[in-house]
Computed example of a mutant assay.
Amino acid sequence: MDTKPSFFSVRYDLIQVGQALSFDLFVNSSVVKGKEKFVRIFPQGGVLQKEDLEEFHRKYFQLYIPEEQRRIYLRSLMKSEADDVQKTTVIKEAALQYLHNIFDKDKEFSTELLAKNIEGCREVVEGMVDVLDHHNIDSLRNLIANLSFHDFYTYDHSINVSMYCISIYKTINPKASRKELMHAGLGGLLHDLGKIKIPTHILNNPGGLTDEEYQMIKQHPDFGLDLLLGGHCEVSSDIDLKIVARVVHEHHENFDGTGYPKKLKGKDEIHLLARVCTIADFFDAITTKRSYSEVLQIPDAMNTMRKFRGIKLDPTIFDIFDQHVRYVRAESAKDLRLADHFDPTIPYAKLPIEEIKKFEKEMDFGKIKVVETGKKKEAKKA
């Protein structure tokens, strides 16, 4: 087993000075390309002065922190004066690393590996809760727009969904506790956990899936549930894996009972956080730019989602969500219809959407309507 320590790079402008550092600082001293030899240049607990950091900047191109101290660094960053874009960028980098550790096909999967990285994901979500404390749903869209995206759909999408889940839940429950917000975000971040068992070439194929491949993808909620609850995954007592597992298992259940994997229906059968995740999942899938897919503008996206109100989406949560997304509430130049089979899990090369032509909406024009007279109505009542 490879026990060689790993490191991640850190920006100079995000290192605090004038106070004790909670992490070690390293440099790569190797002069051989492709080789790494990390040497510690400043110890954890030492007080780094501005002059020290400036000297490091002159001498070294890049500073590094041990991977095992990433969570400590993340906590210290949240207390710093860095702006929200800088903080969210670091949060996203940490989330990407933890998700990569979980999904990495080259690593032998184990419940211990999963548990360790869920703990890391929890730290990431705690950071999200802090950053999003003074953001609403609308300003979160702008924050996400300032972040870079990657080619692996699952990672970026899961991070965005996590932030939307926190923001939506905070909106529908303004008195939500920090722990509740953490579970909302953790459920969103891990909602596609079951994709671990789906081949990568299927997950990243924007060219369309066969029926057989799609049936395989539809198993990912069951896979995720089993990974969390079927393998004795042990995490901190403040993480309720049963709640997270319900989000993972139920986020593709439709409000009208037509979803998968169990065809659960309504608020009595589908967990509240799963219903929140469904809206976050849907919204991000059709509005966030991917390298291979065009997306909908906000007015078109909201008009499109509204057609699924009470079908795929919880109508009460959607209405609150709709009220907190800023856009021009006028009839769109195009009346768009998203295919009923649309599934946010699939990285479409092109969204399955079409414009509803004007004549379709006017098909009733000219039809003879039978209007019952008062006598006929009375006869029916009798």
Score class of each variant (00 low, 15 high):
272 L>M: 12
25 L>Q: 11
1 M>L: 09
370 V>D: 09
49 Q>D: 10
37 K>M: 09
117 N>Y: 10
93 E>V: 02
136 N>G: 15
75 R>P: 00
72 I>T: 13
87 K>E: 03
138 D>L: 01
79 K>A: 13
299 P>E: 08
327 Y>R: 13
165 C>I: 02
355 E>F: 01
153 Y>I: 02
158 S>C: 11
133 D>Y: 12
53 L>M: 10
231 G>R: 12
295 V>E: 12
181 L>F: 02
247 V>A: 05
151 D>C: 02
27 V>I: 15
309 R>G: 00
14 L>N: 10
109 F>D: 07
40 R>D: 00
67 E>V: 01
184 A>L: 03
216 M>A: 11
142 N>V: 05
371 V>E: 14
174 P>C: 07
330 A>Q: 14
80 S>I: 04
104 D>I: 02
168 I>N: 03
145 A>W: 05
368 I>A: 08
301 A>C: 10
112 E>N: 13
41 I>Y: 09
130 D>P: 00
243 I>Q: 11
335 D>T: 14
364 D>I: 03
353 I>L: 11
64 Y>P: 11
120 G>K: 11
211 D>I: 05
52 D>W: 05
172 I>Y: 03
95 A>P: 05
30 S>D: 14
232 H>W: 02
178 R>P: 00
138 D>I: 01
23 F>Y: 15
102 I>V: 14
378 E>L: 15
51 E>I: 11
171 T>H: 04
357 K>N: 07
7 F>Y: 15
252 H>K: 11
102 I>H: 08
225 L>C: 05
204 N>P: 00
58 R>K: 15
113 L>E: 05
80 S>N: 05
